[in-house]
């Protein structure tokens, strides 16, 4: 569904993406892990067209997505840090964003209900806590029923209850055969969701494996331990 071919990106001297080749298919839930500053967010932004690669190509359903914009109607993006115009209220924001895509008649407002955001519809964005802003971001990402979901550290800042609601929602969408890409540092949380793992380091994809396969190779049952063991093995080779 999304395909990276030899993608390179430089920011000045920083080589943010090194020869990234990648193939993501519908029905997969991919956990993107790696240390801070390894290029996870850059990878996401290049799927969204916010960052244009220096070389290589990224395609969405077979056609290149570079300098195109319509494909984005099928992507839901939840940013790491959401910041919204401070004087808008939650209700206004959601209404205005829905206006951006008039063709969607059926909006998926399940998260809105589950998070009880309607009771806060009048509150301006500037008065919201970090967690509530995350809830709004999640609602917006899932709102248009996209076939690809890109979630950049979705559960960071959410309370346990809220992150459980989000995980249930992710599972539900995954069951519908969507492609979900999640970056997170909380490997235990990803354990129950992810079907595949991508490990990135310094802009390079170190490995891209099936979770079951990864656990078999390393002989570990926990994703977090398997990821670490895989790294150790790789460095010995």
């Amino acid at each position: 569904m999304i395909r990276f071919e030899q993608v390179n990106k430089h920011f000045g001297k920083l080589h943010a993406l090194r020869n990234v080749s990648l193939n993501c298919e519908a029905g997969q839930c991919i956990a993107l892990v790696g240390p801070n500053g390894c290029g996870k967010t850059t990878l996401f932004k290049s799927i969204l067209g916010l960052v244009v690669p220096d070389s290589g190509d990224i395609s969405f359903d077979g056609s290149t997505l570079i300098r195109s914009h319509l494909y984005r109607s099928r992507i839901g993006y939840m940013p790491q840090i959401g910041r919204y115009p401070s004087n808008l209220s939650i209700g206004q924001l959601i209404y205005l964003i829905r206006q951006l895509r008039e063709e969607e008649t059926q909006a998926d407002l399940e998260l809105l209900e589950e998070y009880h955001l309607e009771s806060m519809f009048e509150k301006p964005m500037r008065s919201l806590s970090g967690g509530t802003i995350q809830k709004v971001s999640a609602t917006i990402a899932f709102m248009f029923n996209p076939s690809v979901l890109i979630l950049d550290e979705p559960t960071a800042g959410l309370d346990p209850l809220a992150s459980e609601i989000l995980k249930e929602k992710i599972k539900k969408e995954l069951a519908k055969g969507k492609l979900i890409i999640i970056s997170s540092h909380l490997l235990n949380e990803l354990d129950e969701l992810a079907t595949q793992v991508i490990y990135m380091q310094e802009g390079e994809i170190k490995y891209h494996r099936d979770i079951t396969e990864l656990k078999e190779i390393t002989g570990e049952t926990m994703l977090s331990k398997a990821v670490v063991r895989m790294l150790k093995q790789a460095s010995y080779v």
């Binding site: 932004k45 969204l48 067209g49 916010l50 914009h69 319509l70 494909y71 984005r72 109607s73 992507i75 993006y77 940013p79 840090i81 959401g82 910041r83 919204y84 115009p85 401070s86 964003i97 951006l100 895509r101 917006i140």
Partner: peptide, 17 residues
């Protein structure tokens, strides 16, 4: 400058730059 992060969100919608 303050609009920057929201610009990213707008650009993740099917809108031209």
């Amino acid at each position: 400058y303050n609009f920057n992060e929201f610009l990213e969100l707008l650009l993740s919608q099917p809108l031209k730059r």
